[in-house]
């Protein structure tokens, strides 16, 4: 078993479906995790969206430095935040970036980061369309 598959096995909660088949915004899972606390769920989504640009910036800076361990750490943080917010496709792509970082493959992590931005923008637009955001929030340029 290779390092990547071993790592995947260790992550019980990471979805295995292709990104395109995952829900962009899994509201049911979000509310289920928080025992139906809609107010907290809304705060988590807003916080994730507001905090994503900083987390992405830290990830991109680490990739530019060629610092694979920092890439792993920042991707891990994004993955956790995305999971909390019900952003399933962002969670999956950030897991792939984390795996690339743990394998020392910064070039792959950088390429995947472009997809991460796209998935985040999809999530932000979906949350906005569904009325989860109080106002128009600025997106991240893909």
């Amino acid at each position: 078993m290779g390092a990547a598959s071993a790592h995947r096995d260790a992550e019980e909660t990471v979805p295995v479906e292709p990104v395109g088949e995952l829900p962009v915004f899994d509201v049911d899972r979000l509310l289920e995790r928080l025992s139906g606390d809609a107010e907290l769920a809304r705060s988590v989504v807003e916080t994730f969206i507001a905090g994503f640009p900083n987390m992405l910036g830290a990830l991109e800076s680490a990739a530019l430095r060629g610092d694979s361990q920092s890439v792993r750490l920042h991707a891990h943080s994004i993955k956790g935040a995305a999971a909390n917010a019900g952003a399933r496709s962002v969670q999956e792509v950030s897991f792939r970036v984390e795996t690339a970082g743990s394998q020392g493959d910064v070039a792959l992590a950088s390429n995947l980061t472009e997809d991460l931005k796209k998935q985040f923008e999809l999530f932000r637009m979906t949350a906005e369309e569904l009325g989860w955001l109080p106002y128009n929030t600025r997106g991240v340029s893909a």
Binding site: L34, D37, L40, V44, F48, G51, G80, N84, A85
Partner: peptide, 12 residues
């Protein structure tokens, strides 16, 4: 906890 959403949820 360094990640903000986890910190918020745990705090709540």
């Amino acid at each position: 906890e360094d990640e903000q959403t986890n910190r918020m949820i745990l705090d709540r």
